[in-house]
Simulated assay, not measured.
Amino acid sequence: MHALVVVAHPDPASLSQAVTQALAEGVSSAGHSVEIADLAKEAFDPRFSLSDLAVHRREIAQPADIAFEQARIDRADALVLVYPVYWWSMPALMKGWIERVFANGWAYDEGADQKTVKKLGHLPIHLVGIGGATMRTYERHGYLSAMKTQIEHGIFGYCGAPVVTSELLLPVPEMSEHLDTARALGSKVFEAANEAAVAA
C-alpha cells in the first residue's frame, strides 16, 4: 500500500520535518511505499484565486498544479498530514493546500439542489500536529476541541474522509521521543486503516 505524507514547515531542520521523515521510515519499515509532499520546499501556492473560484463553480478545469496534487492523493491509500500548530490550527500553507486541492467535483460534489455528495470515503486520514503549549492549555481554553471540530469534522468530515489517527505532539523532556512516536505511527498507518474499515 502507499501513503502520502504532507508536511508544511519551511525549516528543513524543524521538528515537523524530522517527525515527517521518521513517520515515513515507519511506513517503509512496515513494507509499504511512501511519498513526502513538502509544501514549502516545493513552493506550493496556497492562495485561493479567481481561477480557483471558477473551478469551484465548474466554469473551468483544474489547473495543472492542482491536478498534480489530486493525482498524488488518488495514488495514495492513506493521507498523513504533519504540521506545526500555528494560532491553534494548521499553518496557512497547509490550509491553503486543502482549500485549493480539496475542490468541488473532486473531494465532494455540491449540486444545484444544495445536497453535498462526499467523495473521499475511501481515503483514511492521519493527522499529526506539533504544538508548543501543554495539554492543560489546550484543554483549559478549548483549543483541542476547536481544532477537532474545525479540522476533523469541518474539513475531512465534509468530504467523507475518515480521520483514523489524530495525534498532538507536545513538549517533552526529550524531543527524540516524538520521533519514536512518529515511527510507530507510520508503521501502523495501514493497520489502523484496516481496523477502521472493519468497524465500518
Rank of each mutant, 00 (worst) to 15 (best):
K41W: 02
P46Q: 09
A133N: 13
A18I: 08
A193D: 01
H126T: 06
T165N: 13
M90E: 00
Q62G: 05
E42N: 15
R183D: 02
E167M: 09
S49K: 10
P46H: 03
L81A: 07
G96F: 01
H32D: 13
K119M: 13
A193M: 10
V172I: 07
Q21S: 11
T134Y: 07
D77H: 12
Y108P: 03
D38C: 07
L168G: 07
V6M: 07
A22N: 02
F68Y: 13
L79E: 03
A37V: 00
A161V: 06
D113F: 05
E152Q: 15
Y86S: 07
A103N: 07
I125A: 01
E59T: 08
V198Q: 12
D180I: 03
A199T: 13
F44N: 02
D65C: 15
L50H: 11
A112H: 10
V80C: 08
A54D: 12
I125F: 00
I151D: 04
V117D: 11
L144M: 14
E42R: 08
I151S: 05
R136Y: 11
L4F: 02
V34K: 05
L53N: 13
S51P: 01
Q17R: 14
P63A: 15
R140P: 00
V80S: 04
T149Y: 11
Y83A: 15
L144D: 12
G132L: 08
H2N: 13
R72G: 03
D180K: 12
I60P: 07
